[in-house]
Computed example of a mutant assay.
Amino acid sequence: MGIQIDRSSTDNNARVSLTLEIGKKDSSDPFYVCATEMAEFRWPDSLNLEMVEKLLNQNAPSLLLGYLRPIISQITAASPYNAYNLPFIDFSEK
């Protein structure tokens, strides 16, 4: 799993992307999936820097995971194996 945060140097916005890699590219796993979800996040001037950092590092990846979860499940369900259901991830601990 990887998180990338690209903050704008001029505006109150950032692009956050979450990349998940499931399985290996060999015969040891039933499937291999590498998926990335990205979104742009904006915030008002009234938020302090500490809150912005928390939102970008914890809340943004949690939201993106919510979009990736059904996609991964649907892709893996199309294989001869059972669907892979992504677990919930606590992004507050690094």
Results as ranks from 00 to 15, higher is better:
1 M>L: 07
2 G>I: 08
3 I>M: 05
3 I>D: 04
3 I>Q: 07
4 Q>Y: 10
5 I>R: 02
6 D>E: 14
6 D>N: 12
8 S>I: 06
9 S>A: 14
9 S>D: 14
11 D>R: 07
11 D>M: 05
11 D>P: 00
13 N>G: 04
14 A>N: 03
15 R>M: 13
15 R>H: 10
15 R>G: 02
16 V>S: 01
17 S>G: 04
17 S>H: 01
17 S>I: 02
18 L>R: 02
18 L>K: 00
18 L>F: 04
22 I>M: 11
25 K>L: 15
25 K>R: 15
27 S>V: 14
30 P>S: 09
30 P>A: 09
31 F>D: 09
32 Y>F: 15
33 V>G: 05
35 A>K: 07
35 A>D: 06
36 T>G: 07
37 E>G: 07
37 E>H: 12
38 M>R: 14
38 M>N: 09
39 A>Q: 14
42 R>K: 15
45 D>F: 11
45 D>R: 13
45 D>P: 10
46 S>I: 09
47 L>V: 06
47 L>Q: 11
48 N>H: 14
48 N>G: 13
51 M>F: 10
52 V>A: 02
53 E>M: 00
53 E>S: 06
54 K>Y: 10
54 K>E: 08
55 L>H: 05
55 L>A: 04
57 N>K: 13
57 N>E: 13
60 A>D: 01
60 A>H: 00
63 L>Y: 05
63 L>E: 00
65 L>R: 02
67 Y>L: 11
67 Y>D: 04
68 L>P: 07
69 R>S: 05
70 P>I: 06
71 I>D: 02
74 Q>E: 13
74 Q>G: 09
75 I>K: 04
80 P>E: 10
84 Y>E: 08
85 N>E: 13
87 P>M: 07
87 P>Y: 05
87 P>K: 08
88 F>M: 15
89 I>Y: 09
89 I>L: 13
90 D>L: 07
90 D>S: 07
90 D>M: 09
91 F>C: 01
91 F>A: 03
92 S>G: 05
93 E>G: 01
93 E>F: 14
94 K>L: 12
94 K>Y: 12
